[in-house]
Amino acid sequence: MKVGLFIPCYVDQFYPKAGIATLELLEKLGVQVEFPPKQTCCGQPMANSGFSHLTHDIDELFVKSFEKYDYVVVPSGSCALHLKEHLHSTKNPAAAERLRARTYELVEFLTDVLKVSSLRARFPHKVGVHQSCHGLRGLKLSQMSELVAPKFSKPEQLLSYVEGIELVELTRKDECCGFGGTFCVAEEAVSAKMGKDRVSDHVQNGAEYITGADLSCLMHMEGILNRQKSKVKVLHIAEILNSFEG
């Protein structure tokens, strides 16, 4: 199994550690992983702003970069969802179609494809899990609080394999953090308020770390935590799953 690792633009630029943890985690699990160097972005920032017609070249570049892999793994629910729903190619439509079906967010790749049932990881801290909306309602990584259906959570299942970790209960377990792509600047007031409220739910329930499968949400919440000079930190879930703190 050959996996092409897609590291979203902002992860590449601002959160390389999450990318490294993803890579190391997959390697530890015996997966052959490569990072195709010409990749850039999935096109979501443009598409969600109404400019999906400007993403053709980005899509072509993506298909070209990843067509040779069995799977594409992305440590971001939101980018994975965008690719699964919107990746198209006029040059190579068959490859685009195959890639749409074979693109996985990291957590679901671990639970659904690799069927991971244990991990050598230790993280003795109180952690709040942020269910990012695209991961939750788009990729269905966890059961959504609105639906009358059996409960499950893939990220929490993986975190349960981590030694010493304590997950905190949130008051609103899957409310949006307000990042929303360009929403975060176009609707600054509401976005910031949503972020503050989400952060405060984690803080008030005793989290030392906020984790999740989407760094975009975490970047937004980190911006608020840092402005508040809070000691609470954000970590991508890969960094916890790849951690063995003494």
Binding site: C133, R137, C176, V190
Partner: peptide
């Protein structure tokens, strides 16, 4: 108005 949303899906 269609931009007044994070597309959270709730």
């Amino acid at each position: 108005l269609p931009f007044a949303s994070t597309l959270c899906g709730s």
